[in-house]
Computed example of a mutant assay.
Amino acid sequence: MSGFSLTRVGAVLIKEFKQLSRDRLTYAMMLLMPVMQLLLFGYAINSEPRHLPTAVLIQEDTVFARSVVAALKNSLYFEFAAQARTPAELDEMIRRGDVQFAITIPGDFTRRVARGDTPQILVEADATDPSATGGAVAALAALPNQALARDLSGALSPRQARAPFEVVVHRRYNPEAVTAYNIVPGLLGVILSMTLVMMTSLSVTREAERGTMESLLATPVEPIEVMVGKLAPYVLVGLIQTVIILVIARLLFNVPMLGGWAGLSLGVALFIVGSLALGFLISTLAQSQLQAMQMSVFYILPSILLSGFMFPFRGMPGWAQAIGEVIPVTHFLRVVRGALLKGQGLGDMWRELVALSAFVCVVTALAMARYRRTLD
């Protein structure tokens, strides 16, 4: 056996570089994946969100009430997005998820402050994601001593000896701030994405590699028939996974299930079909199982990081939220959490269901357009 040769090493090295240049998808993934991770973790991830959308019900328009609103805004945690006219309208805003906080300033607020009766301001927080509201709720502790510091002057100066009012916080939908109530329902979307997209893309690509797809293409089967026939078994798999996850969530983690079954069922069906169609689309793009796996991961990683599963969605910058709104997992998580934790009905989650329906239509159309009846 001949000794070590740098010439042979160089030949193998050149061969590998040529092979890598031919597999452009793998090369692109190697370069894009670390860049994407760096950008997402560096810019998009924020565990202490600020400028959270807030609705306020001011039952008296006085200087003291306006000072409280200004102090909340200056804390940078609260961004006033709406002003309710009735308690029912305020309750509807937070139940639909339009706002993160709902603040009520009572009608006798100024009179009771002047009399030293220590009135109460009600702050209702959507605590389905405890990490999204923790910082803002903590900031409320300093509000009574700071909000009216300039207004309590002259004859009202003695009122500054103690807090002129009290802030009462109601953590709705998750009063004990149990993280599992947010994470476990969210796992349904992540698990379905990881299994269905990856399984479908690998299954179809495997047939192309083994040559069985060539036999299928020789038959008079239409593209939509191939897609339905190949995806139907995985629909059943997805439904079984959904049932198992929901049962475990209830029995082991005691996740509340307040209803909304019609919207949840429709959301699950749309998400399963859309995920399978996406896997089929990936299989039409990938030339090998390795490429199918890489493209699946390239979809799953942003789905985990930008959907609101691991980090508060409203804590991300605007551009990251815009990307997150395009990801179907984002809308599916809202459907699942809204149904289980809030008992939302079809009327409350129609926007998310429309987004999932659009995802199914677009991905299915692209998959059909990419499907080739003859092999290259």
Results as ranks from 00 to 15, higher is better:
Ala249Met: 10
Gly263Asp: 08
Glu79Ser: 15
Pro49Tyr: 01
Ala70Gln: 07
Ser203Cys: 02
Pro158Ile: 09
Val35His: 03
Thr284Leu: 03
Ala82Trp: 07
Asn174Ser: 09
Leu290Asn: 05
Gly347Asp: 05
Ile327His: 02
Val243Lys: 08
Gly263Ala: 14
Glu89Lys: 05
Lys230Asn: 08
Ala208Leu: 11
Gln287Glu: 15
Gln146Met: 15
Ala177Asn: 11
Asp23Leu: 10
Ile304Val: 14
Phe271Val: 15
Phe165Asp: 05
Met295Asp: 03
Pro34Asp: 01
Ile103Gln: 03
Val167Ile: 12
Arg22Thr: 14
Ile300Ser: 07
Ser357Ala: 15
Thr128Val: 13
Ala339His: 01
Ile14Cys: 12
Asp61Phe: 03
Thr179Gln: 15
Arg370Phe: 00
Asp108Arg: 11
Pro256His: 02
Tyr173Ala: 09
Asp91Met: 08
Leu285Glu: 12
Thr284Asp: 02
Phe80Gly: 06
Thr200Asp: 00
Leu192Ile: 12
Ala70Met: 05
Pro256Gln: 06
Gln160Ile: 14
Val99Ser: 04
Gly107Gln: 04
Thr128Arg: 10
Pro220Leu: 09
Ala355Lys: 14
Arg206Leu: 03
Ser2Val: 14
Gly338His: 04
Arg250Ser: 10
Gln291Pro: 02
Leu39Val: 12
Ala208His: 08
Tyr173Ser: 06
Ala147Thr: 12
Ile58Gln: 13
Val326Asn: 03
Leu346Arg: 13
Gly308His: 07
Ser288Leu: 10
Phe165Ala: 10
Ile245Tyr: 06
Ile105Asn: 00
Gln160Met: 13
Ser47Gly: 10
Pro158Asp: 02
Arg172Ala: 00
Ile103Glu: 00
Gln37Pro: 01
Leu258Thr: 13
Ile327Pro: 02
Phe165Leu: 13
Val268Cys: 07
Pro220Ser: 05
Ser21Tyr: 11
Val226Trp: 06
Pro49Met: 09
Asp91Arg: 11
Ser357Phe: 10
Ser357Pro: 02
Leu6Asn: 10
Ala358Asp: 06
Ala147Tyr: 05
Pro130His: 06
Ala277Arg: 13
Asn254Phe: 11
Val228Cys: 04
Arg334Gly: 08
Ala249Val: 12
Leu196Val: 14
Leu57Phe: 01
Leu266Asn: 10
Glu89Gly: 04
Asn182Val: 13
Leu143Ala: 05
Val362Tyr: 01
Pro144Trp: 09
Leu192Phe: 00
Ser21Phe: 12
Pro175Ser: 03
Tyr173Trp: 09
Thr54Arg: 05
Val247Ile: 14
Ala358Met: 14
Gly318Asp: 10
Ile240Cys: 06
Ala114Ser: 10
Val190Thr: 12
Leu72Asp: 02
Pro158Trp: 03
Tyr234Thr: 13
Ala102Cys: 04
Gly267Tyr: 05
Ser203Gly: 00
Phe4Trp: 15
Leu76Pro: 04
Gln100Ile: 13
Pro158Thr: 06
Glu214Asp: 12
Gly211Asp: 02
Glu209Val: 09
Thr284Ala: 07
Ala82Glu: 11
Ser153Met: 14
Leu32Asp: 03
Pro49Arg: 09
Leu32Val: 14
Gly343Trp: 05
Phe41Ala: 06
Trp350Ser: 15
